[in-house]
Design a protein around this nucleic acid. Structure first.
Lengths: 195, 195
DNA sequence: TCGTTATGTAAGTTACCACTAACATACATA
DNA sequence: TATGTATGTTAGTGGTAACTTACATAACGA
């Protein structure tokens, strides 16, 4: 029974329930650990929060976006990245929603700020994918569109839960979004970009 | 100097800063009113919060979506609704972000839950617009796409602030998003819908 | 066996917060 | 003038939360 692991798990479940407002008492109880132990190890609640989140972000959202970006066909690439990221996000929906809430409140440090982390990783993936094509693409606009897809599933009222669908349905939806984004890319080629 | 107005304005600025966590003391100070006055009028902080928000939602986001939905051309309709709603949302960005944060935390009553309110009003607009066309449209999917556009501007890191752009730029962006959504509608016609 | 290290228990400190009670004041209207 | 109504001031109550201190205990290596 690794104490650190115990604390991390307990802290996460407590933080998911109440966000940063979860008391150290609750965290301690959830982790099966004395409250003072938390302070001896992490000094402040804020530090505990950041440490735990940094760890969990790497573990759960560590993206292999560049792998996906190697795909040469843009429609397939977009479909894959939507399918992949959306699945991860929806699997951790409660955690992600808590992070979004705290982010909106300005409570997150840069390294742990989920929207920023995801947005910048999307941009990197897009840059990588388009670098060798002589297609002029507004990366920011495209990343925003992708982000919008994720956010809509995370925040808008859900009739059907994404992670409860069959793989075929999921792929179909991902493809639909991908084609939607694709259509603006093709358009941008004959016009000019973003602004 | 209408006291009620005073209280509402003060409460809003306090709530924008700290969400529902703003103390009644802070609200009172911001409103230039004694703390006890708030309790005499609204009994509890929660009730004050809900009353104020309900009022402000009606005032600031009271939508004439059905007006917009009368437009017969779908591309123009979508462009208009995006342009219109996005402008309102971005003009009240801080307030909206606070509401999103509280919504994610499950702190909002139904009538004041911004994502739900907007999503359902979007759906109504779409239903109205498509009711007399013999085009089979997945309203939910379409509303989700629209919602995603708004959320992306509200949450993702912004290089350019939407409400600081020229009207022409704004319309151009709105149109771009509209065409993107439009492309999925056209596709759906020859295939089947959403799931 | 001794000292170090990690933990637990229990009590306490300080600060804040939602909410209340008691009393005073100002104003308007009958 | 008298009375009611809305407000302010001040103090207080009970609860909670972040964080600390002091002391005890168990494990482990030298």
């Amino acid at each position: 029974m690794d104490k650190t692991e115990q604390i991390f798990k307990g802290a996460i479940t407590a933080f998911i329930k109440k966000g940063m407002q979860a008391s150290t008492q609750e965290v301690a109880k959830e982790a099966g650990v004395a409250e003072v132990t938390l302070y001896r190890r992490y000094s402040t609640k804020e530090n505990l929060f950041n440490t735990v989140l940094k760890n969990v972000l790497e573990k759960k959202f560590g993206a292999h976006v560049l792998e996906i970006a190697k795909e040469n066909d843009t429609e397939i690439f977009l479909t894959n990245i939507i399918e992949d990221r959306l699945e991860v996000l929806m699997k951790n929906k409660d955690l992600v929603r808590m992070l979004l809430s705290e982010s909106l409140r300005g409570n997150l440090t840069e390294k742990v700020n989920l929207p920023e982390v995801i947005f910048s990783s999307l941009k990197k993936g897009l840059e990588y994918h388009f670098q060798n094509k002589n297609q002029q693409v507004d990366i920011d606009f495209c990343a925003k569109q992708l982000g919008g897809v994720f956010l809509s599933y995370l925040i808008l009222p859900d009739t059907q839960q994404f992670d409860q669908l069959t793989p075929e349905s999921r792929r179909k939806i991902a493809k639909k979004h991908a084609r939607s984004i694709l259509s603006t890319l093709e358009e941008a080629q004959s016009g000019q970009s973003g602004i």
